[in-house]
Write a protein that binds this DNA or RNA. Structure first.
Length: 145
DNA sequence: GGTGAGCGT
């Protein structure tokens, strides 16, 4: 039943379920390279997705916690706890961008599964984000000049 | 928020 638990577990938890014997790997072969893209974890990137945060954990708390493992850019620029826009409460996860990829890796290795404000947090590479605008067509703000 | 998986105001 460890397989079901690993499949139902969040992305950051699958690492803790990596005690799968080879016989199980034969019964459940991983998809070959090229079959997955956005549904799996993103490739190494300087941007980190951090989940499992406490509701009380703020952006600056996140920044100072990840700063001891690498160079995180200034608060408000590359470290942010996602909060609800209307209520202002934390959603329990956030993002941290390191200066270099090696620092991002050290940040994950150092903070993944660690405690922050009493909660076990999960750090992994953030997925590539779709570009906000595509200036190939007509720009939106037109007609009020 | 006394809400607990998740990929962003």
């Amino acid at each position: 039943m460890a397989i079901r638990a690993a499949a139902a577990a969040p992305r950051g938890l699958r690492r803790l379920f990596s005690t799968i014997p080879t016989s199980m790997s034969t019964l459940f072969p991983p998809p070959a390279n090229g079959g997955v893209s956005a549904l799996e974890q993103a490739e190494p990137n300087t941007n980190l997705f951090v989940s499992g945060l406490s509701k009380r954990t703020t952006t600056e708390r996140l920044q100072e916690a990840f700063s001891e493992f690498g160079k995180v850019v200034q608060v408000g620029i590359s470290a942010r706890v996602v909060t609800d826009r209307v209520s202002g409460f934390s959603k329990g996860f956030g993002f941290v961008r390191y200066a270099t990829l090696e620092d991002a890796t050290k940040g994950i290795e150092g903070m993944h599964g660690k405690f922050l404000d009493g909660w076990v947090i999960f750090a992994e590479y953030a997925r590539p984000r779709p570009p906000p605008a595509q200036p190939d067509n007509m720009p939106p703000p037109y007609g009020r000049q």
